[in-house]
């Protein structure tokens, strides 16, 4: 055991400065504020499209086919004369459901698998991790694609496909975290006073393990929405009257030369949402990152 009269404690000072927060505060906070507002607004769109959208998504104004963005139709109209803005607003709910539901399912299953693997270690860990690695031999979008193709179209099927493809990531993060927490002295300290294993798990291991999972889920929400809309784009999505963002974008592809706006705006919506989620995720990571908040 190394003697720990560490000069690092002397350097209380530099330790704080190593944290990543000392950047331009106002600007960074402004970004995070903006990101939060975008996320809230898009969630509102998904929940209450009727109140926000200027038109019905099914209303076809045949006199205004393919009209470019203007004051009446901010995002223009499509080939059927539908208002693109309204379509984007209505399409948000399916896109968000795919993203959020798959993160919840994938995060939960992955989290449980990772916890079990990390907690028990040994042969269980070896087997579980081999299985996870096999799942990882197929890159995320291909795995989701294969599953979605096999299950056939349907919102739940897409959710499932995206969720399964995201399991390995969550499982590995949770496993790593649990393995590291498991080795902390306070866990052994608790064991040394005679705390039963289940209590150690519930009192010490879980509460100290899930913040990275939370961070990953936030960033994973972005990834899931990208994969989900990618599947829709490829035609694996739900075929219905109101397309989600991916499908909407795909439909617009045929009209690139005559109506750039049909594809551009749904894509912008995806990008803005994912971007905002990532900005928030980065902030969460900076806050929770064991490297920056390490107090040893």
């Amino acid at each position: 055991m190394k003697e720990v009269v560490n000069t690092k404690t002397v350097l209380h000072v530099p330790k704080w400065k190593f944290t990543k927060q000392k950047t331009n505060f106002s600007v960074e906070n402004l970004f995070i504020l903006g990101a939060g507002m975008v996320v809230i607004f898009i969630i509102l769109c998904a929940l209450f499209p009727k109140w926000i959208a200027p038109y019905s998504p099914t209303f076809m104004d045949t006199s205004l086919i393919l009209s470019p963005p203007n004051s009446a139709h901010w995002f223009g109209t499509d080939y059927f004369g539908r208002d693109v803005l309204s379509l984007v607003i209505y399409g948000s709910s399916d896109s968000l459901i795919i993203g959020i539901a798959s993160v919840l399912i994938g995060g939960l299953i992955g989290g449980i698998i990772g916890s079990v693997s990390g907690y028990f270690g040994g042969i269980i860990d070896v087997v579980v991790m081999r299985l996870i690695e096999i799942l990882m031999t197929i890159p995320g979008i291909l795995l989701a694609l294969a599953i979605a193709a096999a299950l056939g179209p349907g919102l739940m099927n897409i959710v499932l496909a995206v969720a399964v493809s995201s399991i390995p990531g969550y499982a590995r993060v949770m496993r790593g975290q649990l393995m590291s927490i498991k080795k902390r002295k306070y866990v052994e300290a608790s064991r040394s006073i005679g705390t039963p294993e289940w209590r150690i798990f519930l009192w010490h291991l879980l509460p100290n393990s899930w913040s990275p999972l939370l961070v990953m889920a936030t960033i994973g929400l972005g990834t899931s929405i990208l994969i989900g809309s990618g599947l829709s784009f490829l035609g694996l999505g739900i075929i219905k009257e109101i397309p989600d963002w991916g499908a909407l974008l795909s439909q617009g592809r045929g009209y690139l030369t005559v109506g750039w706006w049909i594809s551009t705006f749904p894509g912008l919506a995806i990008t803005l949402f994912v971007l905002s989620v990532n900005i928030i995720g980065d902030k969460l990571r900076d806050t929770f990152d064991p490297k920056t908040s390490r107090t040893r």
């Binding site: 972005g222 990208l226 809309s229 990618g230 784009f233 991916g246 974008l249 795909s250 617009g252 592809r253 690139l256 750039w260 594809s263 551009t264 894509g267 912008l268 995806i270 990008t271 994912v274 971007l275 990532n278 900005i279 980065d282």
Partner: peptide
């Protein structure tokens, strides 16, 4: 940030446009 946030099918379409 944009790299990881933009769907390829969208950035592709923008590039085509």
């Amino acid at each position: 940030l944009f790299g990881i946030s933009m769907p390829t099918f969208w950035s592709g379409i923008l590039l085509i446009l």
